[in-house]
Design a protein around this nucleic acid. Sequence first.
RNA 1: GCCCGGGUGGCGGAAUUGGUAGACGCGCUGGACUUAAAAUCCAGUGGUCAUUUGACCGUGCGGGUUCAAGUCCCGCCCCGGGUACCA
Length: 1037
Amino acid sequence: MEYPFRNVERKWQKFWEKNKTFKTDIDPNRPKFYVLDMFPYPSGAGLHVGHPLGYIASDIYARYKRLLGFNVLHPMGFDAYGLPAEQYAIQTGTHPAVTTEKNIKKYREQLIKLGFSFDWDREVMTCDPKYYKWTQWTFIQLFQSWYNNETRKAEPITNLVHIFEKEGNKNINASCTQENDFDADQWNSFSEQQQQNILMNYRLAYLSETWVNWCPELGTVLANDEVKDGFSERGGYLVERKKMKQWALRITAYAQRLLDGLEKIDWTDSIKEVQKNWIGRSEGAVVYFNIKGFEEKLEVFTTRPDTLFGATFMVLAPEHYLAEKITVKERKYEVSAYIKKAINRSERDRIADVKTITGVFTGAYGINPVNGKQIPIWIAEYVLAGYGTGAIMAVPAHDSRDFAFARYFDLPILQVVTKSKGITENIKDWEDAYDSKEGFMINSGFLDNLPVKEAITKTIRFLESKNAGYGEVNYRLRDAIFSRQRYWGEPFPIYYKDNIPYPLDESLLPLELPEVDKYLPTESGEPPLARARNWTSPDGYPLETSTMPGFAGSSGYYLRYMDPHNDEAYFSPEANQYWQNVDLYVGGDEHATGHLIYSRFWNKFLYDLGIACMDEPFQKLINQGKIQGRSNFVYRVNPEKYAEYLLWEKIKELGEADNVIKDYRDGHRKFDFFYKKANLIIEIKTQEKLKKLESFYKDYINKTNKKLLLLPAADIIEINNTVIQEIKQAIEKAEAGIIFDRHKIRQPKPLFVSYNIKDRKLFSTPLYVDINLVQNDILDIEKFRHWRPEFKDAVFILEDGKYVCGWEIEKMSKSKHNVQNPDDLIEKYGADTLRLYEMFLGPVEQSKPWDTNGIEGVFRFIKKLWRLFHDQDNKFSVTNEEPTDQELKTLHKTIRKVKEDIERFSFHTAVSAFMVCVNELTDLNCHKKKILEPLVILISSYAPHIAEELWEKLGYTESVSSARFPACEEKYLIEKTFEYPVSFNGKLRFKIELPLNLDSEKIKDIILSEKKSLKWIENKPVKKIIVVPGKIINVVI
RNA sequence: GCCCGGGUGGCGGAAUUGGUAGACGCGCUGGACUUAAAAUCCAGUGGUCAUUUGACCGUGCGGGUUCAAGUCCCGCCCCGGGUACCA
């Protein structure tokens, strides 16, 4: 009777593996389709139920595309370098490669058990030298390239050298950090060292001394996207700012192209928005201010050049290179102290403390290029070194930060923009700056009366004509710090000769990760690779000791999948031409500012080299929602509180409440109950406490001459009636003293109260219970008793014979005991059920709590599907009868719906459609091959195992994945009649079945003469009748 | 503060172009089968009122457009996520 899912699933998983069913090769006769899941990092914990959500969706899509005749590339591999394995290595000495391999093995097994159609022959892992050879190779190409802003692409650095030799750098428009101009003669006279230093300012992978995010706890530098609120994203350790020499990738060169590319790809608006913000384009102008008494000019960036006349002071970031230099003698001490303090503050402190206004005056003055006015130059933390030029012109009237600063230090504020033409407002009354771009210029010389937008262009033209500035676009995006002072990563193919970095010859790749004695920095603070023996180039020059960051290996992996075993090239041109780029990419949106930017950059660079044929790597992106945990709680009774509660309830029940004081206070002492008339204190305590407090009670009674009845909590909870007797006797007793039968004390058993028991909150505390001991919020009491030794004798207060648990939605984590392991569910229900259920939960993109409460329904559906093909004795029984119209309609309706739903990634509604279909066919008692066979194909992308089994039983020897998706034939769906809902003034009153070929006029006549209509029309004039054929009829009265 | 999502039964969610709100599943209630349980099957299930026919209310709140609004427009409230001295 039952569907033997365990055997069936194992059987087909083996079949797919043995027959390499999902192995893909280039096939020029078939259109390609590339479906990719985001590269998983194999953590030690294995997959939890949240991970497969995206994998299931992409697998359904991949299988569906295959059924449509596409040649589908659907690979899987592992992002194997990473901190957790290395941290574990530091703690235990286990080589991270060992840990990683073990974790990958577990992941792979789990993925296979879910029945994914991966081409495992293409599996890659980033820590494999055959793989990272190409990561290193790409790094060398980046090192050997510069970005030409004229051609808007990367070009070989050798071209640049030729230009330098001929004409110097004057005519070069490059994305670079080179500040000084030189001509050909100068270049040719430079030493090798000087030339290399200059080239470093142009290279796309370059070494530079910059402020970096240093994480002392991890002993490494981190990229901006790896830092969240001043803490490392992995591990959550404090991050400091530190000036260090680091490898960086000139991703900023690609800022505009990364922005433009977003228009061409099919991603959600929210991810595009996040990337736009991260890139942070702003248009404005660079303005040069002369500094009184200095040669140097102060360069500022502003988005509001129109407000130049309103600039009343200037501010430098504490890190600004001129900050100390321009400071007047008598302020030197104060300024140095301020700078030192500001720089040493951690990122975290700065963030936490943005509201405090700090700053210091340098004593120097800048000269405003538009009017020659001298304005004071300040230094303040609110100006960031990393953005623009690290210096600003402050326009307090039209920028809230400048406004706040000016108010705090009492600096002049001058209005230059007004809402309505020519009206100057009283600035003293302002509470904030007027920073809108709507308005007209005042107090601005040649700009007066112009609207803001025109004033901006006019100012830029003015500045350019005076050589005092130029129009400029600025980006928030920073270059990506690319070195990590860690062991478990790709070594840089770089050696140092006279301290100048040179790339290794490509023939020496891969440069393999060496063995080290410890995974820690050296005593002198060098990275772990400095421990490696003979860590030198073949000529004996020292190799770079940093390693690459996690995003190095994951930035181009989708390209490697196209041709993963190629040792001659990253991938062959043929493979790239055929597979092009990823058509559907599925993964979490937490990669929006990391991986998804880096790989777009990486891809664009390879595109510039002519290696990748597509400009954008991922055409369509789906972000699966996160699966939150659903924790369950049991409520542990506090025996004292519960006993007090019970006794008080009893007292009330007996009508004695007026005679008893609850929570009786005598001076600073507190007791549970005091029975006034009998001068009797009743105190409920647990065994240990009774012992501890014995002498205290004696003292107290001696002093007060009261009666004290001591009751062990366990007694009240378990044997209520004898306790009442005891209390009665105590009341009647004449003499003072302690009444306590020490023979009776017992340790109360752990007691738990069900969720809906009255007043539960008063005497119990919630306790996480492992969700695997709970089903539909009902606790499995026996399992619970075995869960932990201390619950062995647990007792329960039930409701309706059951223990009902409480629940809450929160993060899935071990400590909350709400982690659902897919393996357990597969064991219980099978992979097909799990796949369907994860989809059935709701839209893939939406975050949702994990809740197994509904999985039984999906399991029932699978069994019901099986039963369509089998008789009562579980014998395969499918007939060759011709299907009825009704059956055909059900089938084709389902084909249409499922196809539509998969194509719009609405996987959950497709599952509903399957259920409706199987329900209908069951009702129709349909066991016909002509109906069931297409159904098997239809469902095979969702529930591949059962589909394969049924397909085989239907007589096929090849995998169902080689079948063709059935076509929906509209002719079976044409209806002759329709049950029209008839509304009166928009309110549905009744339904009427009418032929669909009736024209509107006839329908109107029918409705007006219909008996049921008369009731609603009631002799009132009918204004209008709206007939939407096949939809609705509305009568307006 | 700013920028994205989102708010529909007891729960997850459906309603694709403005056209029958609540598909499908869970849960719950009742019934059949069974010595019993499980499994399975059948019926019911938004709320309120009503003996029934049925009536009224109902998609976060308040307005509006329309013959017709969960869907469009205006104004708010709440929840989730991202982001922030970015000049």
